[in-house]
Amino acid sequence: MPALRTEAVTAGYGRSPIIHDISVTAELRSVTTIIGPNGAGKSTFAKTLVGILKPMSGRIFVGDTETTKLPGHEIPRRGLVYVPQNDNVFKRMSVRENLEVGGFVSKADPSERIDELFQIFPDLAKAKDKKAGFLSGGQQNLLAIARALMAKPTVIVLDEPTAGLSPAYTSVVWEQIERISQLDTAALVVEQNVERALKHSNYVHIFVAGRSHVHGPAEEIAALDLPSIFLGRSVADQPA
């Protein structure tokens, strides 16, 4: 059973839909990536998965639990957590406190889990008493990811975790994502950088104008003429 499955999800803001009939699955121990031009509806889809937006039609399953109609704060309890695109840390709280907020699931002492995460993210360990707002952009993204991992999720949805980062830090973040996915988690990543996405993911969806235009294993997608697909051409138009 996939860790995350959507069936023909249509959603948007207010009454007009932005994304149409999106069916995506994400498997444990793999990275599924959504790429596509600006405004294609990638973030809108991510927000729908985590309950910030409610689908107008279609269904969403985390494992075997349907989460379509659950209130947003219930969804993390079902194993799906979300790292938003921008401003994703609690800036006036310390690094450590940020992690504690993520550790809501067990009532138990979160410090053991925090130590585990500090081992995965040594940069954060060094800055643990700093206000999160004083971290660099890349460190903030890592903190947001680490905080999401506090809950030991089965699915982690990351919206452009490398936006605005230096190439070196982009590699760090992507390596972390791959590593995380190996810890019995399904990673669903929204990414702008096509090359990176293809390099680090197992499965790729290309969103264009609110639809999953093309999807397939990363190697197959890599072989396509992506620029023309981004402009809305279909795979059938591809030269052989």
Binding site: H73, Y82, D87, N88, F104
Partner: peptide, 10 residues
């Protein structure tokens, strides 16, 4: 600090 993120964390 961020009610949306707090909501997304449960």
């Amino acid at each position: 600090d961020d009610s949306t993120v707090a909501g997304a964390l449960g």
